[in-house]
Amino acid sequence: MAVTGDLVQMGALIGAGLACTGMGGAAIGIGHVVGNYLSGALRNPSAAAGQTATMFIGIAFAEAMGIFSFLIALLLMYAQ
């Protein structure tokens, strides 16, 4: 079974797969943000409501990193 095809494309696809590991980092980041928010909120529930927006911003920042890796993956797959 002879493997034919573009070597560059193979590298790009492997790279895309590797780039997706970055999403794990984003997952860890979001977990940190929400976990810390919750532990703070349970200690002082009265202050929690005011910080929900901040939490979502934090989530968005952390998630953006995962999105960036997703974007890199897409770029590797499609934009050559």
């Binding site: 968005a60 998630e63 953006a64 999105i67 960036f68 997703f70 974007l71 897409l74």
Partner: peptide, 16 residues
Amino acid sequence: VSHSIRLMGNMMAGHA
């Protein structure tokens, strides 16, 4: 860069 890519990436990723 991050300002624009964040929005675009989020929207694109979900839809994809």
